[in-house]
Design a protein around this nucleic acid. Structure first.
Lengths: 140, 140
DNA sequence: CAGAACACTTCGAGACTCGAAGCAAAGGTA
DNA sequence: TACCTTTGCTTCGAGTCTCGAAGTGTTCTG
């Protein structure tokens, strides 16, 4: 029965994230962040070009009004800046402030320290990412 | 660098769940369910003894007031019943109604059909559950 | 038999989510 | 050029979710 295997896999996947988020609570509270704002902050990699709102909605699987709200929280806390994209003046791009980079580093590190995935050794981690990489591949 | 591997694994894990939840939206809407109520419904396996509120808060990683609220939603929709545990009259146990079992079957099936994990074959699924099983093991 | 511990509920405030409607910029057509 | 459509984003309002503090009733402990 594959359905049972699939159920178990999905439940386990879900649980890993829920446990990570759960243990992250206190650290997020220190920075006046919530799960929603943490996810948004995480989705802005300072090593990559600043994403537009449009790109962020795709990364976070949320809709535009929702992202505008969450972005507002990050703006209020001085963690991100919103600026017009000169190439397309309809579009706004989000970039981290200095404080934003600092806070992001801290909470992401905390996430990695607290996630139960940290129990896996390097080869197991690669095995896992290989499997999930296949899963998340664009339309195959 | 293990941190990069860990980051990738956590991100992938998170993304699998978010995509699943995202694609599930329309099906949940049909039954007037939300992500929160779906998770609660999912956490009540009709094949197992009815869980208490206490057990449910642990399964869902939420607190008591939150669960009381979500349980209220399921009660309103006639999907679960709440009864006093005769063994400990402080405790309330949750069991599915006939309608609850029907709806749970349907939305769980929809989740399995929509999750990107369904791309994996049986042996890959087992490999994944083995890894995540190790991850979720109680205090090792 | 107190008094502490426990399971749960209520209340109120804050945070999140989304559809509908609106705005300005960009693209298409003639 | 003028006009219409599409796109990216914001605003608004209603509904949902989340949680700390406080309260009720039950069980446990000394």
């Amino acid at each position: 029965m594959t359905a049972a295997d699939l159920t178990a896999a999905l439940a386990a996947t879900h649980d890993v994230w829920m446990r990570t988020a759960d243990r992250l609570g206190p650290v997020l509270a220190e920075h006046r962040l919530t799960t929603a704002t943490f996810q948004a902050l995480w989705a802005i990699d300072p090593a990559e070009p600043p994403p537009s709102m449009k790109v962020m909605t795709e990364r976070l699987h949320c809709n535009a009004p929702n992202l505008t709200f969450v972005t507002g929280q990050l703006l209020d806390r001085g963690l991100v800046e919103r600026s017009v994209d000169p190439a397309d003046r309809r579009s706004r791009v989000l970039s981290l402030t200095a404080k934003g980079r600092r806070v992001r580093d801290e909470v992401v590190r905390a996430a990695l320290e607290n996630t139960p995935l940290a129990r896996l050794d390097e080869s197991e981690l690669r095995q896992l990412t290989a499997l999930l990489g296949r899963v998340l591949q664009p339309e195959g």
